[in-house]
Amino acid sequence: MRTLAIGTPQKIDTAKGKELITGICKQTMEEAFLSFDGFHQDDVADKKHHGGPDRAVCMYPHEHYAQWNDEFECTLPPAAFGENITASGMTEAEVCIGDIYTIGKTVIQVTQGRIPCSTIDQRLGYPVMKNMIKTGFTGYLCRVLVEGMVRSDDQIAVHTKDPLGVTVLEANTIYFHNPKNIEGIRRVLAIEALADDWRKKFEKRLEIALTTS
């Protein structure tokens, strides 16, 4: 793990000088307790599109920071995208939906790719959102299977790989760029661990793809 970060919603001034209440600005921590609902002292402002047991933990690959820093000629702050955990060696191309990981004594399961929102751009002042969607470098969300204390120096280890092997990047590519890929949509829907919200979205895509094919 590179960074552990938590934070509750607060009012910020956006890059365009407007006020926004958001939980995206998180502070790095040495340790925090992880419950089924997420980290203690961590919360979201928009509960319709964020949070909940299927989206209790937000993770982002550390490897992408170098690309965004180069692309936007900046130095992004830690947890720049509002993620709880910034991790190395866990890119969207390596992590599959349904994979289970241990972090210290806790256990989490990947449930869906993250759908980036405009709050990222409003905080940072760069058009990161469209680039996340273009590349599929969105990060991903997890549910908690075993609660416990998490430390910033804890190792993240694979517990169980999902048998279907659908990577977050593959699912992101279908979701954002190939919504008429019926076979691909069905592969995603076959994942038992898929978050309910994403299941509904992919079911809708499948319905549309079948009626327009």
Rank of each mutant, 00 (worst) to 15 (best):
L4W: 07
A5I: 05
A5P: 10
I6G: 00
T8M: 14
T8N: 11
T8A: 14
P9T: 05
I12K: 01
A15S: 14
K18Q: 12
E19T: 12
T22Y: 04
T22S: 15
G23R: 02
I24G: 03
Q27Y: 14
E31I: 04
F33L: 11
S35P: 01
G38C: 07
F39V: 11
D42L: 06
D42I: 13
D42V: 06
A45C: 13
A45V: 05
A45F: 14
K47L: 09
G52C: 07
P53Q: 11
R55N: 06
V57W: 01
P61S: 11
H62G: 00
E63P: 04
Y65A: 08
Y65G: 08
A66F: 10
E71Y: 07
E71N: 10
F72S: 09
C74Q: 13
T75S: 07
T75W: 02
T75N: 06
P77Q: 09
P77L: 08
P78F: 00
P78N: 11
A87H: 02
A87F: 01
M90Y: 08
E92L: 04
E94M: 13
E94L: 14
V95Q: 08
D99R: 03
Y101W: 09
T102L: 06
I103C: 06
T106L: 07
T106D: 10
T106I: 09
V107I: 06
I108L: 09
Q109T: 08
Q112D: 14
Q112M: 13
R114L: 09
R114K: 09
I115S: 09
C117N: 09
C117K: 05
S118F: 15
Q122M: 15
Y126I: 15
V128I: 15
N131H: 05
M132R: 06
M132I: 03
K134W: 04
K134D: 11
G136E: 06
F137D: 15
G139R: 07
Y140V: 06
Y140M: 08
L141Q: 13
R143M: 05
L145N: 07
V150K: 00
V150Q: 05
R151Q: 10
D153Q: 05
Q155Y: 04
A157F: 06
T160V: 11
L164T: 02
V166K: 03
L169G: 00
A171P: 04
A171E: 15
I174L: 03
I174Q: 06
Y175N: 03
H177T: 00
H177D: 02
H177F: 05
H177N: 03
K180V: 04
G184N: 04
G184C: 01
R186N: 12
V188C: 11
A190M: 00
A190N: 06
A193Q: 12
D196R: 12
D196S: 13
D196M: 11
D197P: 00
K201W: 01
E203A: 01
I208Y: 12
A209M: 09
A209V: 03
L210T: 07
S213N: 08
